[in-house]
């Protein structure tokens, strides 16, 4: 029961996020708006109820399961990549490699600089 009550809270936040998106024509999904609202609400309340913690953990632990039907789609979409296979493959593989590399180096560099300046103060 506790898990279902927590799930209901998540669903309500999601629906509220969707409603906001529709009313204010925000180019961000209802789920992400709901996530932001959830974080802000919890920060204002200062604590998480057990039922909410329980059902969020349950959902997060099956995140991989939830994205699987979409992942399978890749195998049935390959034909659409055909004419421009090289361009698409290079953009996805090389592009992602470069962007992961940039993120890690940037973040590492900035963390080092900011902790150093923190220690100097």
């Amino acid at each position: 029961m506790a898990m279902l009550r927590g799930f209901l809270i998540l669903v309500l936040f999601f629906l509220f996020g969707e409603a906001l998106r529709l009313v204010f024509v925000i180019p961000v999904s209802g789920g992400v708006l709901g996530m932001i609202l959830m974080t802000v609400t919890l920060m204002l309340r200062g604590r998480v109820s057990d039922e909410l913690a329980l059902s969020s953990q349950a959902l997060i632990s099956i995140l991989v399961l939830l994205i699987m039907p979409g992942v399978v789609g890749v195998f049935f979409m390959a034909s659409q990549f055909s004419g421009q296979f090289l361009a698409v493959a290079a953009a996805l593989l090389l592009g992602t490699f470069l962007s992961v590399l940039s993120t890690l180096l940037l973040m590492k560099g900035v963390v080092r600089v900011s902790t150093r300046s923190f220690e100097d103060e």
Binding site: L37, S56, I62, L65, G70
Partner: peptide
């Protein structure tokens, strides 16, 4: 299964907090 991604995205707000 995939509709649960909506509430699951909201659930990410809890570890975030």
């Amino acid at each position: 299964i995939t509709v649960l991604l909506g509430p699951a995205t909201v659930a990410l707000g809890i570890p975030l907090y």
